[in-house]
Amino acid sequence: MASQGTKRSYEQMETDGERQNATEIRASVGKMIDGIGRFYIQMCTELKLSDYEGRLIQNSLTIERMVLSAFDERRNKYLEEHPSAGKDPKKTGGPIYKRVDRKWMRELVLYDKEEIRRIWRQANNGDDATAGLTHMMIWHSNLNDTTYQRTRALVRTGMDPRMCSLMQGSTLPRRSGAAGAAVKGVGTMVMELIRMIKRGINDRNFWRGENGRKTRSAYERMCNILKGKFQTAAQRAMMDQVRESRNPGNAEIEDLIFLARSALILRGSVAHKSCLPACVYGPAVASGYDFEKEGYSLVGIDPFKLLQNSQVYSLIRPNENPAHKSQLVWMACNSAAFEDLRVLSFIRGTKVSPRGKLSTRGVQIASNENMDAMESSTLELRSRYWAIRTRSGGNTNQQRASAGQISVQPAFSVQRNLPFDKPTIMAAFTGNTEGRTSDMRAEIIRMMEGAKPEEMSFQGRGVFELSDERAANPIVPSFDMSNEGSYFFGDNAEEYDN
């Protein structure tokens, strides 16, 4: 993207840094990872977990959730003011799984939030270390993106479920800051804005008074975040219109849905970061690795190297396929839920299948599930090659597409044709070009129609051997075009429920 120079890199967003050079960025990201790792080690000690239990991804998720809940100030305040039966607002906890007599047992633990905050700050040299908290939120978000298709949420806001490739980060909490905003897809931002506008339509006082002023500035800020994701002048001009509207209503909703559809071809720039579970960072720190000293990046080879040398386990339900569970977590670790499966298959070195073909449910185990038949197995999170994460949407291309997802959002900077089903997408653009945004709409449609099938995206960008740390010898991959490109292809993934 041309304006790259004016933006802070995501590592800076990730670490609240002012302008830093590459070495400083690597050190501050490393410091953040160190903090998460030290916190995780301490929690495993508190909970008396064995090494194996500490490497269980379900335990990692519970521990991450506990610290996120302990620092969720708004919710904590709300819980104190609106006490609900049987919930102690000062405590947080969740299921911890232990191996007892050759069987997995679930144990519900409860801790004072104050105590968890103390352990977290102690692991982070006394700081609140917001960057580390956001990092864990993005890992949870990436896992949700890989596990669930947001059909219901899309339909509720009037969008087409086939636009799911635009929904990265749709389950990120509001408090995820600049680093969170960077990884949100165009569809996620559109959905947040539509929800806001709908509230304004239904509630006369939404934009009024002292609160209304705050609401208005939040609305304009979200519009600017979305505008910054678009790469064409016409899309940005249309966002200006939406932002400046005196009284946002149905016309703005129409414009936003139009823009979301246009992003299936004229893709937005959305950041991709490899955020790993805390149970990967903990053992690495415990083994003596100093992330701050060595430096770390979320968008280069580092996460690949770390996963190459990590042992992570997962509980497996009786009829689940461990290899499929591994694929789910591998995609989440690489922030690749909406990437082209052919690119992923090449990088991973084994075939990556669409969601609907995987015999696996989510990673988390519900409290009512029976533990008797639970097994555990090693997650295979290694890769054959590594590639640089991208934040450009890439230019655009036609490809055989599917009944489910009709476009992709690249996660890796790797040369390819970008699949999208042009006739299906263009069919949504018939007729409606009147109104105050008509010239911009016409211009956007013209650009979409001009998108050429034979153009290559990320020209000359390749993948790298894991021994090639400096990215000196790019390998331009070859793809098996007979395979499906979309992950949520004609899909039956479970729906995400809060």
Score class of each variant (00 low, 15 high):
residue 480 D to I: 02
residue 296 Y to P: 12
residue 375 E to R: 02
residue 440 M to R: 06
residue 480 D to H: 11
residue 200 G to F: 11
residue 457 S to W: 03
residue 248 P to H: 08
residue 406 I to F: 03
residue 291 F to E: 01
residue 242 V to S: 07
residue 267 R to P: 02
residue 209 G to Q: 07
residue 445 I to V: 13
residue 131 A to E: 10
residue 237 A to F: 01
residue 10 Y to H: 14
residue 274 S to L: 09
residue 111 Y to C: 01
residue 385 Y to P: 15
residue 48 K to E: 02
residue 166 L to C: 01
residue 124 N to S: 14
residue 206 F to C: 11
residue 74 R to H: 05
residue 359 S to G: 04
residue 496 Y to W: 14
residue 153 A to V: 09
residue 415 Q to K: 14
residue 146 T to R: 01
residue 109 V to T: 09
residue 28 S to C: 11
residue 323 A to S: 13
residue 481 M to A: 04
residue 171 T to R: 04
residue 280 V to H: 00
residue 477 P to S: 01
residue 409 Q to D: 00
residue 493 A to D: 00
residue 260 A to Y: 08
residue 489 F to C: 05
residue 57 I to L: 15
residue 280 V to Q: 00
residue 369 E to F: 03
residue 178 A to T: 12
residue 68 L to D: 04
residue 70 A to Y: 11
residue 51 D to S: 08
residue 99 R to K: 15
residue 114 E to N: 14
residue 63 I to K: 08
residue 84 S to D: 00
residue 143 L to P: 11
residue 363 V to S: 08
residue 278 A to D: 09
residue 399 Q to V: 15
residue 153 A to Q: 11
residue 445 I to A: 14
residue 255 D to K: 07
residue 121 R to N: 13
residue 494 E to R: 10
residue 335 S to D: 07
residue 303 P to G: 08
residue 427 A to D: 01
residue 3 S to Y: 15
residue 166 L to S: 13
residue 485 G to K: 05
residue 23 T to N: 12
residue 108 L to V: 11
residue 452 K to A: 07
residue 132 G to Y: 05
residue 184 K to E: 04
residue 448 M to L: 13
residue 4 Q to Y: 15
residue 244 E to L: 04
residue 321 N to K: 15
residue 68 L to N: 12
residue 53 E to P: 02
residue 31 K to I: 10
residue 86 G to L: 13
residue 145 D to A: 11
residue 269 S to W: 10
residue 213 R to V: 09
residue 463 V to D: 00
residue 144 N to I: 10
residue 144 N to E: 06
residue 215 T to F: 04
residue 284 A to K: 15
residue 350 T to V: 10
residue 453 P to A: 06
residue 226 L to N: 08
residue 272 H to S: 08
residue 86 G to D: 00
residue 160 D to F: 06
residue 158 G to V: 01
residue 456 M to K: 14
residue 182 A to E: 01
residue 486 S to W: 02
residue 383 S to A: 13
residue 252 E to S: 04
residue 204 R to V: 08
residue 277 P to Q: 13
residue 364 Q to P: 02
residue 487 Y to C: 06
residue 23 T to H: 15
residue 470 R to G: 00
residue 254 E to L: 05
residue 313 Y to P: 09
residue 295 G to I: 11
residue 272 H to C: 00
residue 376 S to I: 04
residue 496 Y to D: 06
residue 430 T to P: 14
residue 289 Y to M: 13
residue 48 K to P: 04
residue 104 W to G: 02
residue 386 W to S: 07
residue 22 A to R: 14
residue 278 A to I: 14
residue 356 G to T: 07
residue 475 I to L: 00
residue 179 A to S: 12
residue 334 N to S: 10
residue 450 G to L: 13
residue 116 I to D: 05
residue 452 K to C: 03
residue 211 N to Q: 04
residue 459 Q to V: 02
residue 265 I to W: 00
residue 433 T to E: 09
residue 181 A to R: 08
residue 295 G to H: 05
residue 346 F to C: 12
residue 300 G to P: 06
residue 335 S to F: 05
residue 163 M to P: 00
residue 203 D to G: 03
residue 434 E to F: 00
residue 391 R to I: 07
residue 44 C to Q: 06
residue 57 I to H: 01
residue 379 L to H: 05
residue 147 T to A: 02
residue 301 I to D: 04
residue 158 G to N: 14
residue 33 I to C: 14
residue 296 Y to F: 12
residue 267 R to Q: 10
residue 215 T to P: 04
residue 426 M to A: 07
residue 328 L to G: 04
residue 101 D to N: 13
residue 341 L to N: 10
residue 196 M to P: 04
residue 442 A to V: 14
residue 68 L to W: 09
residue 212 G to S: 07
residue 428 A to P: 01
residue 231 Q to W: 01
residue 3 S to V: 02
residue 171 T to G: 10
residue 84 S to R: 00
residue 205 N to V: 12
residue 38 R to S: 09
residue 368 N to V: 13
residue 478 S to D: 00
residue 136 M to P: 02
residue 84 S to P: 03
residue 450 G to S: 11
residue 308 Q to G: 14
residue 391 R to Q: 07
residue 313 Y to T: 03
residue 183 V to T: 13
residue 394 G to F: 04
residue 249 G to L: 11
residue 233 A to D: 01
residue 53 E to G: 02
residue 37 G to I: 03
residue 296 Y to A: 15
residue 295 G to S: 04
residue 28 S to K: 12
residue 230 F to Q: 07
residue 148 Y to K: 03
residue 105 M to P: 10
residue 368 N to S: 10
residue 73 E to K: 13
residue 229 K to E: 04
residue 474 P to D: 01
residue 442 A to T: 15
residue 448 M to F: 00
residue 380 E to S: 02
residue 181 A to T: 04
residue 156 R to V: 11
residue 274 S to P: 03
residue 26 R to D: 03
residue 12 Q to C: 10
residue 69 S to I: 07
residue 128 D to R: 06
residue 402 S to G: 02
residue 322 P to R: 02
residue 164 C to F: 00
residue 442 A to K: 01
residue 88 D to W: 01
residue 214 K to T: 02
residue 282 G to M: 10
residue 435 G to K: 02
residue 350 T to Q: 07
residue 73 E to L: 15
residue 356 G to D: 10
residue 154 L to Y: 02
residue 289 Y to D: 08
residue 454 E to T: 13
residue 347 I to Q: 04
residue 339 E to A: 03
residue 332 A to L: 04
residue 413 S to W: 10
residue 453 P to W: 14
residue 228 G to F: 04
residue 97 Y to N: 10
residue 363 V to I: 15
residue 10 Y to D: 07
residue 445 I to K: 09
residue 304 F to W: 01
residue 132 G to I: 15
residue 283 P to G: 15
residue 82 H to E: 00
residue 463 V to N: 01
residue 138 I to Y: 02
residue 259 L to T: 04
residue 4 Q to M: 07
residue 158 G to R: 01
residue 380 E to N: 10
residue 209 G to M: 07
residue 157 T to C: 13
residue 382 R to L: 09
residue 326 S to G: 04
residue 131 A to Y: 02
residue 122 Q to I: 15
residue 66 M to L: 05
residue 418 L to T: 08
residue 200 G to W: 08
residue 275 C to R: 05
residue 429 F to Y: 15
residue 188 T to W: 03
residue 329 V to Y: 02
residue 171 T to S: 03
residue 364 Q to T: 15
residue 198 K to I: 04
residue 2 A to D: 01
residue 239 M to E: 06
residue 341 L to P: 11
residue 450 G to P: 12
residue 344 L to P: 08
residue 392 S to T: 08
residue 417 N to L: 15
residue 119 I to K: 04
residue 59 N to C: 04
residue 212 G to Y: 02
residue 460 G to T: 03
residue 309 N to K: 15
residue 280 V to Y: 04
residue 130 T to G: 01
residue 452 K to D: 00
residue 124 N to K: 05
residue 81 E to Y: 11
residue 90 K to G: 07
residue 14 E to Y: 03
residue 32 M to Q: 01
residue 410 P to F: 01
residue 22 A to C: 01
residue 97 Y to E: 13
residue 380 E to D: 12
residue 33 I to Q: 00
residue 229 K to Q: 12
residue 495 E to R: 12
residue 283 P to L: 14
residue 386 W to C: 06
residue 189 M to G: 11
residue 308 Q to L: 15
residue 490 G to F: 05
residue 462 G to E: 14
residue 423 P to M: 07
residue 36 I to K: 02
residue 284 A to I: 00
residue 138 I to E: 01
residue 85 A to F: 06
residue 169 G to R: 04
residue 265 I to D: 02
residue 248 P to D: 06
residue 204 R to P: 01
residue 262 S to V: 13
residue 250 N to C: 14
residue 263 A to P: 00
residue 227 K to Y: 09
residue 304 F to I: 14
residue 159 M to P: 02
residue 43 M to R: 09
residue 297 S to Q: 03
residue 163 M to W: 12
residue 425 I to P: 00
residue 47 L to V: 15
residue 232 T to H: 14
residue 362 G to D: 15
residue 444 I to A: 10
residue 408 V to R: 00
residue 27 A to W: 01
residue 72 D to K: 07
residue 186 V to W: 00
residue 361 R to K: 11
residue 127 D to R: 10
residue 492 N to I: 03
residue 6 T to N: 01
residue 373 A to T: 13
residue 34 D to S: 12
residue 398 Q to C: 07
residue 70 A to D: 14
residue 479 F to E: 00
residue 214 K to D: 02
residue 298 L to G: 10
residue 470 R to C: 02
residue 182 A to F: 09
residue 218 A to R: 04
residue 182 A to R: 01
residue 261 R to C: 07
residue 320 E to W: 09
residue 6 T to S: 00
residue 185 G to R: 09
residue 358 L to F: 09
residue 139 W to A: 06
residue 45 T to S: 15
residue 464 F to C: 02
residue 381 L to N: 14
residue 307 L to V: 11
residue 73 E to I: 15
residue 1 M to G: 07
residue 97 Y to H: 08
residue 290 D to Q: 07
residue 18 E to K: 05
residue 63 I to C: 14
residue 460 G to H: 12
residue 156 R to Q: 13
residue 77 K to Y: 00
residue 100 V to W: 06
residue 343 V to W: 01
residue 458 F to G: 01
residue 175 R to C: 03
residue 113 K to Q: 13
residue 355 R to M: 06
residue 444 I to F: 11
residue 18 E to P: 13
residue 455 E to G: 14
residue 254 E to D: 12
residue 207 W to D: 09
residue 472 A to S: 09
residue 167 M to R: 06
residue 449 E to V: 05
residue 424 T to L: 15
residue 419 P to L: 13
residue 407 S to Y: 06
residue 237 A to L: 04
residue 166 L to Y: 01
residue 40 Y to L: 04
residue 356 G to Q: 09
residue 83 P to M: 12
